[in-house]
């Protein structure tokens, strides 16, 4: 028997050949995912920095724009998304404990909450914005001396919430793949890295919203 085939026979199929053990493989995977998330932080960070600059410059206009958003649906969506983070964390926990049916159940719950978030956004918020002529380039019109600044606020609003929603759609797509893998019984306490890194991604998307919600809906006060 050659050395190579001897080495193959010694490790489980999910352990890639170039890692010493599963622990090293998992640590590398987690580190790599965090590295990706850091690029995402800088990506969204540029938008947040730009938002801060224009908010300081057009304070009254941004406050006026913010007051046209529906804080009830914003808060409801925050709760829905934090709830989906909880179910995602529980899906990872189920994978750590090799509870295969629970993995599928919690991922499905996470997807339902994720779809609910996007549904609320589309159906109750963006459509209302459209009817109130608040979408730039789509018949934007507000009666206000600050109208150009309000329009700028809504450019930020749709760009930031749109990118956030796009990240959620991508997350939902990844979860479809996870469901397929889970249904095939691919995950157990030895190998659950895909569930773990998808969890990291989903929690990151949650964190972006944790900042978007107060910045867009609340800052400047609602009194």
């Amino acid at each position: 028997m050659t050395d190579a085939s001897a080495a193959h026979s010694e490790h489980p199929p999910y352990l890639a050949h170039h890692f010493t053990d599963i622990e090293q493989q998992n640590e590398s995977g987690t580190l790599g995912m965090w590295l990706f998330l850091l690029t995402e932080i800088m990506f969204f960070g540029g938008l947040f920095a730009m938002y801060a600059v224009y908010r300081l410059k057009f304070f009254e206009a941004f406050r006026e724009g913010s007051h046209r958003l529906n804080v009830t649906f914003g808060a409801l969506n925050t709760a829905v998304l934090i709830g989906s983070s909880l179910t995602m964390a529980l899906a990872v926990r189920a994978a750590q404990l090799s509870r295969r049916k629970a993995i599928i159940g919690f991922i499905v719950l996470t997807m339902i909450l994720g779809i609910a978030f996007i549904g609320i956004k589309l159906n109750f918020e963006w459509s209302a914005d459209y009817h109130e002529h608040l979408i730039p380039w789509m018949g934007f019109h507000v009666e206000s001396p600050n109208a150009p600044g309000v329009r700028l606020f809504f450019c930020f609003y749709f760009f930031m919430t749109g990118l956030h929603a796009l990240h959620m759609v991508i997350g939902l797509g990844i979860m479809c793949v996870l469901l397929r893998m889970a249904a095939k019984g691919r995950f157990d306490e030895g190998y659950f890295a895909p569930v773990e890194v998808t969890g990291l991604y989903w929690h990151f998307v949650d964190i972006v919203w944790i900042f978007l919600f107060p910045l867009l809906y609340l800052i400047g006060g609602r009194y």
Partner: peptide
């Protein structure tokens, strides 16, 4: 979350 919403309504 509830706190941050509540505080926003106080000047």
């Amino acid at each position: 979350t509830a706190t941050t919403v509540g505080v926003a309504f106080v000047d």
